[in-house]
Simulated scan of single mutants.
Amino acid sequence: MPPFYNTWLPFIYLYGVGGIFFVSGLIIIRKSGAYNPNVKRHRFWWKITILGFFYFMLIHAALILAALYL
């Protein structure tokens, strides 16, 4: 099995550091007033954006696991 630093460390870095920038961007969007939670379309795309981040993270983790164990 490949070592931890060749498999999971890049994943943790990608979604850890990338997640910090992602959350920072969401905070900037909210503070700038670009997101209005009273607008149905804004709420829809807000949820899609957050769920999309976790969706790709789960797909990436599943593919890493498949490469390691299949």
Results as ranks from 00 to 15, higher is better:
1 M>F: 11
1 M>A: 12
2 P>E: 04
2 P>C: 00
4 F>W: 14
5 Y>T: 11
6 N>T: 12
7 T>Q: 13
7 T>F: 05
8 W>R: 06
8 W>Y: 14
9 L>I: 08
9 L>C: 02
9 L>H: 04
10 P>V: 10
10 P>L: 13
11 F>M: 03
11 F>L: 03
12 I>P: 02
13 Y>Q: 06
13 Y>A: 07
13 Y>H: 03
14 L>N: 09
14 L>M: 07
14 L>K: 05
15 Y>W: 06
15 Y>A: 04
16 G>F: 00
16 G>V: 02
16 G>D: 05
16 G>Q: 06
17 V>S: 10
18 G>N: 00
18 G>A: 05
18 G>R: 00
18 G>H: 00
19 G>Q: 13
20 I>P: 00
20 I>V: 15
21 F>Q: 07
21 F>W: 07
22 F>S: 11
22 F>W: 13
23 V>I: 13
25 G>A: 10
26 L>I: 01
26 L>A: 00
27 I>Y: 12
27 I>F: 09
27 I>P: 06
28 I>C: 10
28 I>P: 04
28 I>G: 08
28 I>M: 13
28 I>Q: 14
29 I>L: 15
29 I>F: 09
29 I>Q: 08
31 K>V: 01
31 K>N: 02
32 S>L: 07
32 S>Y: 07
32 S>G: 04
33 G>W: 02
33 G>R: 02
33 G>N: 03
35 Y>H: 08
35 Y>K: 04
35 Y>Q: 03
35 Y>R: 05
35 Y>S: 02
36 N>D: 12
37 P>K: 06
37 P>Q: 05
37 P>N: 03
37 P>L: 02
38 N>T: 04
38 N>K: 06
38 N>R: 06
40 K>Q: 14
40 K>V: 14
41 R>P: 01
41 R>G: 03
42 H>E: 01
43 R>L: 08
44 F>R: 12
44 F>A: 11
44 F>L: 14
44 F>W: 04
45 W>H: 05
46 W>P: 01
46 W>K: 06
47 K>S: 13
47 K>F: 15
48 I>T: 14
48 I>M: 14
48 I>Y: 08
49 T>G: 06
49 T>P: 01
50 I>C: 10
51 L>D: 09
52 G>N: 11
53 F>D: 11
53 F>N: 10
54 F>H: 09
54 F>R: 04
54 F>L: 09
55 Y>Q: 05
55 Y>M: 14
56 F>L: 07
56 F>P: 01
56 F>E: 08
58 L>A: 15
58 L>E: 02
58 L>S: 08
58 L>I: 13
59 I>L: 06
60 H>Y: 01
60 H>R: 01
62 A>E: 07
63 L>Y: 08
64 I>E: 13
64 I>D: 09
65 L>I: 09
65 L>G: 05
65 L>E: 03
66 A>W: 14
67 A>G: 12
67 A>P: 00
67 A>Y: 09
67 A>W: 10
67 A>I: 08
68 L>H: 07
68 L>K: 13
69 Y>N: 11
69 Y>M: 07
69 Y>T: 10
70 L>C: 07
70 L>I: 12
